[in-house]
Design a protein around this nucleic acid. Structure first.
Lengths: 221, 221
DNA sequence: TGTACATCAGTGAACGCGCGTTCACTGATGTAC
DNA sequence: TGTACATCAGTGAACGCGCGTTCACTGATGTAC
């Protein structure tokens, strides 16, 4: 059981994990301007260099392959967030360093982030729902994390969810801008600055949140 | 020239603008879980009730139809923003009323917003680039608008762009959440609250922006 | 008011093509003896 | 070390189907006289 799968070598001579090659072929085809539901099974096998029928040795259909891509892509995203958190945070430059980590990761794992971005509202319901579910999970995890900060004592659980939601939102937006920026061939540093400003603004807003809420309430009375 | 196009009435008896019907058929098919590049020309004509060949009387190909959908969808979005701005803003509840307008519009014109959301990172490069271009324009317009506010005098043009970018970003996120919420069949009011909090947080952050930037600079020295 | 004519949206048949899925098969590999 | 056997990834041919695009056509409509 779980013997490593080797290519049958009918044509080539390589020893490759074909299953992995199929997953990567889809990411590659998506990078060449296709959405997932516009990629055919035959295209994928052609890219890998096997017969269409051989596909079924690894996945029952394309959707299953897609769902596996969702979970591996989110593994990449979680790794990124872990790196950001573990990073020895020297108080003052937390935000900038976080954004720098973002950028490095998105550059290195571009196709995973592109996959999530494209299929988050894509045409395949199963993928969309799975991505939505994973993002909801991510927000909850971050909220739990934020609750451990000393300053968080005056926040309700609901507000922590909102804040976490907003931070994930800012992260998504930064990733999206990076994906588009690369396409337009623009500069890195410019977008790191932009991302830093955006994230810092969220933090500033959060720090002001409580006091302002009180003001707002007294106003409407 | 520009005579109204009537259906040839070979089958039915309706007098319909077929061109419009084709555009709406695509939005309808996308609402039934397909991305644009996974919709076939034949599906569209089948939906409208004409022969595939008749398609070419109205558009040279599917991409042209898609580009027209981009511009009409953005017309809807601009209308929404205009309504938000013109709305007699009673100072205190600007944010809440803006979010309410958002929600109303997205509900009414759901398919246009869904189209933009889905194709913003979709598989068709031409659509993606056009949407990116329109969004960039929108940010610039908003920045110009913000510059007219009295408090804006201490802001650089670049910072106004960042702020406008962030506000459009918050708007996009609210729209996205609404689109997903409808799918999950959740409550409206809950998401209006959420949207309000998100937008208010951006405003709060913006108001704190300048002073904090000075603090940050003195820290790093 | 009646007739001849141009316009043009829609028809329906035809084409070659790539698609997903099935099937009986092949042959390299690892294992048991 | 040598042999017989089970496993199973990959083969290649075949199927029926929906695709985009072409073409000569039809027939309702508006216009000129």
């Amino acid at each position: 059981m779980a013997r490593p799968q080797k290519r049958h070598l009918g044509r080539g001579n390589r020893e490759v994990d074909t299953r992995q090659a199929l997953l990567e072929a889809v990411l590659e085809l998506m990078n060449r301007d296709k959405s997932f539901d516009a990629i055919s099974l035959r295209e994928v096998t052609r890219e890998v260099g096997i017969t269409p029928a051989a596909f079924y040795r690894h996945f029952p259909d394309m959707d299953s392959l897609g769902l596996e891509l969702v979970s591996t892509s989110f593994r990449t995203l979680r790794e990124m967030l872990k790196t950001v958190r573990v990073n020895p945070a020297p108080e003052q430059n937390v935000v900038r360093r976080s954004v720098e980590t973002f950028v490095t990761y998105v550059r290195a794992q571009r196709r995973h982030f592109q996959f999530i971005a494209r299929e988050r509202f894509g045409g395949v319901a199963a993928l969309r729902e799975e991505i939505d579910h994973e993002l909801t999970l991510l927000v909850s995890e971050l909220a739990t994390d934020l609750a451990r900060y000393p300053n968080a004592s005056k926040w309700t659980n609901e507000d922590l969810q909102v804040l976490a939601n907003l931070m994930i939102g800012a992260m998504i937006r930064i990733v999206e801008q990076l994906l588009m920026a690369r396409r337009r061939g623009e500069d890195d540093a410019e977008w790191i600055d932009m991302g830093e400003k955006q994230l810092r603004l969220v933090v500033l807003g959060a720090l002001q949140w409580r006091s302002s809420e009180l003001i707002e309430e007294s106003k409407t009375k």
